[in-house]
Nucleic acid binder design. Structure first.
Lengths: 202, 202
DNA sequence: GTTAGCATGTAAGGAGTTACATGATTTT
DNA sequence: AAAATCATGTAACTCCTTACATGCTAAC
């Protein structure tokens, strides 16, 4: 219906840009950053990491944390297996940084809610003009959807039942709320940030 | 991240339950019913119809609307091709009706926003108790997410930047708004529908 | 006569989901 | 000693997306 490919790449690179991490931690940070509606599964995260490694956006660094207690060290030492807890830490490469910025700036996929959310989470890496462009694009998209809602209802209102009507009304209200929020972000973006205005009173 | 398979089956069967239609019209009705955020592509609709036909939930009825003007009839008549505008009308079968109700009542997949929306669009086919159950389940799901948001923010608030924070706050507000809407629906569902209360004044 | 809308599909490709599978470490 | 959490992955399956491909009909 509305979901496309490769959504994980951007936030994964964005997090690795801050510091190298292994998959397990990456998932936790992803949830912390994006909220509980974004549950990333292992089956999507690890393949995404492999894709990133394959395209040389990240490099893998196998890390073995040796056992803490030194008296248990000899247990399986002979086999060479089970060398403490193993991790696979991923580090972003210069190429990965490039890809990250390219994905972030690309405005083609900025319209739908999920892609917009992902970009917003890394807005700090964009110039104010780029931020404003993405905000305006998202705003235009939502405004268009709102107009389509109204046209749609003008034509079909009588034919849809009360539950569906309630759903569409709620959907429209949510869209209006989204627009109001974007407007806030736009206003803040346009406001000069360095001068912190005191109570403006002559 | 959060989208699963076979979402089209339910609304397609639901629409065909009202009347038989062909694919093109089905898509229009789908959009009219679900709103502009649900753009169904041909590449997903036709395969879904084929799946439904294969599982005998619908039967296909090829319909040929003959040409209106009778003097042009002979043009390609010899070849046997191009017999006016062809349509493929789909009609729901008793088995399809069963499947529709089973999908509609199944509460396992009722929690996420999209599945809930789809079920709501056909709530009229459910008993009030079944409706209340789905509403309560959705409510519980949203309440849980809200709690997760708060926990999450309690732990990570300092580590996330202002854009991400703004996004999470907006997301929480939207979730609260969703809950309030569900509460409205629950209230209306519990209210007796046949007695229309006049101004209650003693 | 040309554009816009009606009408039906296929093909290639990538991606996500669920379930499976395994093992280490820390906490209770 | 058991449970929870850390940690990494694979496999099968199904689905969606985008682009391609074709042709009819009404309206301007």
């Amino acid at each position: 219906m509305k979901k496309q490919a490769g959504m994980l790449e951007l936030p994964v690179l964005g997090l690795l840009k801050e510091r190298s991490m292994h998959g397990y931690e990456l998932r936790k940070q992803l949830s912390a950053m994006l909220g509980p509606f974004w549950q990333v599964s292992w089956g999507s995260l690890y393949p995404a990491l492999r894709r990133l490694a394959k395209s040389e956006a990240v490099v893998v660094e196998p890390v073995v944390k040796p056992r803490r207690s030194n008296r248990e060290t000899k247990q399986k030492q002979a086999t060479g297996l089970s060398p403490g807890r193993r991790k696979t830490v991923y580090r972003i490469t210069p190429k990965g940084e490039e890809m990250f910025l390219a994905m972030l700036e690309e405005s083609a996929h900025a319209v739908d809610a999920d892609h917009f959310t992902l970009k917003l989470a890394f807005f700090r890496y964009l110039q104010p003009e780029a931020r404003l462009m993405l905000l305006e694009r998202r705003r235009a998209y939502l405004t268009e959807k709102l107009a389509q809602f109204r046209n749609n209802l003008r034509e079909y209102r009588e034919r849809i039942d009360s539950y569906t009507l309630s759903m569409q009304n709620h959907s429209m209200a949510a869209t209006e709320s989204d627009i109001a929020w974007i407007d806030e972000l736009i206003t803040q973006e346009r406001a000069p940030k360095d001068v912190r205005p005191e109570i403006s009173n002559a």
